[in-house]
Amino acid sequence: MPDRRTAVVTGASSGIGAATARRLAAEGFAVVLTARRAERIEKLAAELPDAEAYPLDVTDRAAVNAFADHLRSTRPSVEVLVNNAGGALGTDPVAHADPSDWRAMYEVNVLGVLNMTQALLPALTASGDGTVVVLSSTAGHGTYEGGGGYVAAKHGAHVIAETLRLELCGEPVRVLEIAPGMVQTEEFALTRFRGDQERAAKVYQGVAQPLTAEDVADTVGWAVTRPSHVNIDLLVVRPRAQASNTKVHREG
């Protein structure tokens, strides 16, 4: 049985999730990595002290419940849940967007957060010092053209965090929301543009220093390790070159 505080990170197979798992491990947490791609999280878990890989699709409620049962039988407590799994699909305007893309984004960005939070909240509360982290986005706080489905989903994630904080007032559980702006990872834009490397690269063209996954992980690590009475309600983090979702300084 691990004697460290336990942190669960969803979407830990790449990008912000993988970087956050590394950061929390460095902070002394026993980290449970979840994602659909088993081989990736198994490789990462092998690199970290006291880490476990558990393949999981956060949109599958039965699988999420089975994961919660697994934690109850193998961990003395769970202190942190980082709801990181998410993603964007497409940039079509509302008038022409594919409803299946919107549905997929809602499933992972909103219902995935709901599934994991509901399943692990009893353990987080029982720990006496639990923390729920919702990795939303600046898209959850401002709109932009071509982003309707993703913006709507991330607004949903923001509302989950905001409402949960009200509902848990007085309970020993903090609810933190981290809302990153422009982050350059190996997969986010590529997934959004369905593998089109050229379109994905244009998102960051001329931006000297977009955020990195490690920048966001550093923010999560800092927020989670504040004293127990300190709740970071909402932390928006952008690169210096980005003033808003629609205003970005591009060189050249």
Rank of each mutant, 00 (worst) to 15 (best):
D3A: 02
A18E: 09
A21W: 14
R22N: 09
R22A: 07
R22H: 14
A25G: 15
E27K: 15
G28C: 05
A30S: 14
V31E: 13
V31S: 13
T34P: 04
E39G: 10
R40F: 12
E42K: 10
L44D: 02
A46M: 06
E47N: 11
P49F: 08
E52R: 09
D57G: 03
V58F: 08
V58N: 05
V64A: 02
V64K: 01
A66D: 03
F67H: 02
D69M: 06
D69L: 07
H70W: 07
S77V: 13
S77E: 09
V78M: 07
E79P: 15
V80W: 04
L81F: 00
V82D: 01
N84H: 02
A85V: 06
G86R: 01
G87R: 01
G87L: 00
L89N: 00
G90Q: 00
D92A: 09
D92E: 06
P93F: 07
V94Y: 14
V94L: 15
D101R: 02
W102F: 14
A104F: 13
Y106N: 02
V113G: 03
L114G: 00
A119H: 00
L120S: 08
L121M: 15
P122Q: 11
L124E: 04
S127L: 10
D129K: 13
D129E: 13
S136F: 00
S137K: 00
T138I: 14
H141K: 03
G142H: 03
G142F: 04
G146N: 01
G147I: 03
G149F: 11
G149Q: 00
Y150V: 04
Y150S: 03
A153L: 02
A153S: 09
H158R: 14
V159D: 14
V159H: 15
E162L: 04
E162C: 01
R165L: 11
L166A: 11
L168P: 09
L176I: 15
L176A: 07
L176G: 06
P180L: 06
G181T: 07
M182P: 02
V183A: 04
V183I: 11
Q184L: 12
Q184G: 10
E186Q: 15
E186R: 14
E187Q: 10
L190K: 13
R194Y: 13
G195P: 06
D196K: 05
D196S: 03
Q197P: 01
R199S: 05
A200T: 03
A200L: 04
A200I: 02
K202W: 10
K202Q: 13
Q205V: 11
Q205I: 12
D215G: 13
D215E: 05
D218W: 02
G221E: 03
A223R: 03
V224R: 08
T225V: 12
T225F: 10
P227Q: 10
D233A: 04
L234H: 05
L234E: 12
R238M: 13
R238G: 06
Q242T: 01
S244F: 12
N245W: 07
V248H: 07
H249W: 15
